[in-house]
């Protein structure tokens, strides 16, 4: 799997990712990151803010200002997704992140189940963006050999411990298959 060179960070992703001891690996995967202003407003505690400060001072992270036309496209995505009962709810900040990722042709990093499911069911609405949750990004890190001393299950365990995030065992198995790291 090849990834775009840039990514868009959603709040629910960075809140957990910023607690992981190897969070800096994101800079080895993407040359630049973007975060909409509305998402930045959701981050106020010490660890995530410190991680964002590091990324901003490195010149890696750009805060993207709010534009009305992005909002209109985001509402349209929310309504499209709501027509399909298989898609859990998508909230406005995640929808805005998706639209920004689509405009930039970036990877969208999010934990929002609605966005992840919508991406699988109506990929044309996201193209050329691709959507990854932390589990898939960890699988990519493992498949690329960025943590050669750590197996995928060990990486998962480390991430869960550091971030208080938990993955579904079925999704871990499915993602390991997807990335050929079973």
């Amino acid at each position: 799997m090849s990834l775009p060179s840039t990514c868009v960070l959603d709040a629910c992703f960075i809140i957990d990712w910023s607690r992981w001891r190897r969070r800096h690996l994101i800079k080895e995967i993407f040359s630049a990151g973007f975060m909409p202003e509305i998402t930045l407003r959701e981050v106020i505690t010490e660890k995530p803010l410190r991680a964002l400060r590091e990324l901003i001072l490195d010149g890696w992270l750009t805060i993207y200002p709010h534009f009305r036309e992005l909002e209109e496209e985001a509402v349209s995505l929310i309504l499209d997704a709501r027509r399909d009962p298989r898609i859990p709810r998508i909230d406005p900040p995640e929808a805005l992140c998706s639209i920004l990722a689509r405009r930039l042709g970036s990877a969208l990093l999010t934990e929002n189940r609605g966005i992840i499911r919508a991406y699988w069911l109506m990929r044309e609405k996201f193209s050329p963006a691709i959507v990854l949750n932390s589990l898939r990004l960890l699988a990519y890190i493992c498949a690329r050999g960025l943590t050669p001393e750590t197996s995928f299950p060990e990486l998962i365990e480390e991430y869960e411990r550091d971030s208080n995030h938990s993955f579904s065992p079925s999704e871990v198995r499915a993602v390991a298959r997807e990335f050929g790291i079973e």
Partner: peptide, 24 residues
């Protein structure tokens, strides 16, 4: 029930990050 951090945070009257601390 939903795993949806943002909407839960808004119900609590908080940011997603603040609500995440309560979740932990």
């Amino acid at each position: 029930e939903t795993g949806d951090l943002w909407i839960s945070a808004k119900i609590a009257g908080m940011t997603a990050d603040e609500f995440n601390e309560i979740r932990i």
